Computed example of a mutant assay.
Amino acid sequence: MDKLHVSIVGGSGYTGSELLRLLVNHPYVEIDQITSRQDDGKNVTEIFPFLPNKIKNKFVHPDNVSFDKSDLIFFATPNGIAMNFAETLVSKGKRIIDLAADFRIKNIQLWEQWYGMKHACPKLVETAVYGLSELKKNEIKNAKIIANPGCYPTAIQLALYPLLNKKIINEQSIIIDAKSGISGAGKKNDDNLLMAEAYDNFNAYSVQGHRHEPEIEENLKEITNSKDIRALFVPHLLPMVRGIYASIYVDLTEDISEKELNSIYSVAYDQSIFVHFMGVNKIPKTKMVRGSNQCRISCFKRHKKLIILSTIDNLVKGAAGQAIQNLNIMFNFQEDAGLNYIPLNP
């Protein structure tokens, strides 16, 4: 079997390095090009000595790269980069998985409002597929462009989908209290991300509104055929490297037993390799998923409310892992190819 040739634009960041960590052991993939502006010409293993010797590539400057031999290109870049390459690559028959936000929101006016730039290829946004792997498999298979979901939206939507789909919660009173490890902010110069600032500290941010909020609302409406989902989302920064933990509060619209809750989630995810409903009244922990492509979910019923808990590794299921899962679906590989990692413990 001929291997699939893939390239990574933005290979020196956290999501880029995580893609490399996972792809080197993928049985059906060969890495073609890896771009980096600051590390142009350097051996990849010089920058990432944790990678095995099987990577012989050097970083290539994005202005000098050729994707002629690539079947698929990952964009592990800041927002606003992939959209400038997309039309040319798609016209050449290349397929794209964008780990940034360029294709996540169909409403272009809303996207431009939240991301503060004009979209370079709005027509391609119409045909791009939002790559929430467990819930969009049929669409992902034939997609030319995959909009890889954000890390927060992945954990949150997987937790909410079964309930919204069954129409048993008030879709206009969803409150989301979510936390992320520092790597979720990417590799950049920011005083707030320094160890001396982040260690032994905990805080909310973007309290007046976060750009993942419209992504969550728009895509949950689409996959559940709901008319007007409203989510109040407040993110927090945890003094840890990896992890997303979402605590979600919703109002029940009908009385439902714990047995029925177990059934709803089990039916939704009983065929899933990576999403695990632990049962009601269980506590997911970030170490249950650290370094893996897994998502752990549980819920508690209190009075007429539900508290839903969901955790993922932001760099794996929240980024590189889900991107590779989408690649596997696109090319009809085993869904867990290159992703069969047990979570790290301790």
Rank of each mutant, 00 (worst) to 15 (best):
G11E: 09
S12G: 04
G13P: 14
Y14W: 04
Y14D: 04
T15H: 01
S17N: 15
L19R: 07
L19T: 00
L19E: 07
L20T: 08
L20I: 12
L23I: 02
V24I: 13
N25K: 11
N25M: 06
N25Y: 11
E30H: 08
D32F: 07
D32T: 08
Q33M: 14
Q33D: 06
Q33C: 11
I34V: 15
I34A: 04
I34M: 00
I34S: 02
I34W: 01
T35Y: 13
S36K: 09
S36N: 12
S36H: 12
R37F: 09
R37A: 13
D39E: 12
D40V: 03
D40E: 09
D40H: 13
D40F: 05
G41M: 05
G41H: 03
K42H: 03
K42M: 03
N43D: 13
V44N: 01
T45A: 02
F48H: 14
P49D: 13
P49Q: 10
P49R: 10
P49I: 01
L51E: 12
P52Y: 01
N53V: 10
K54A: 08
N57K: 11
N57G: 07
N57L: 11
K58E: 11
F59M: 04
F59N: 03
H61I: 01
H61A: 04
H61P: 07
H61T: 03
H61K: 03
P62I: 07
D63M: 09
D63L: 13
V65G: 02
S66I: 06
D68P: 07
D71C: 00
D71N: 08
L72D: 02
I73P: 02
F74L: 13
T77A: 04
T77N: 07
P78C: 12
N79Q: 13
G80V: 05
I81S: 09
I81A: 07
M83R: 13
N84P: 05
N84E: 15
N84M: 10
N84K: 15
A86P: 10
A86C: 09
E87K: 14
E87F: 04
L89A: 10
V90P: 14
V90T: 13
K92F: 00
K92N: 08
G93M: 04
K94I: 10
R95F: 02
R95Y: 07
I96R: 06
I96N: 06
I96W: 10
D98P: 00
D98E: 03
L99H: 11
L99V: 10
D102Y: 14
D102E: 12
D102W: 12
F103A: 05
R104G: 09
R104Q: 13
I105C: 04
K106M: 00
K106L: 00
N107P: 00
N107H: 00
L110S: 02
L110A: 03
W111L: 14
E112F: 00
Q113A: 11
Q113P: 03
Y115F: 15
Y115L: 15
Y115C: 04
G116H: 15
G116M: 12
M117H: 08
K118N: 10
K118L: 07
H119A: 04
H119K: 12
H119R: 11
P122G: 08
P122M: 06
K123N: 06
E126F: 00
E126R: 05
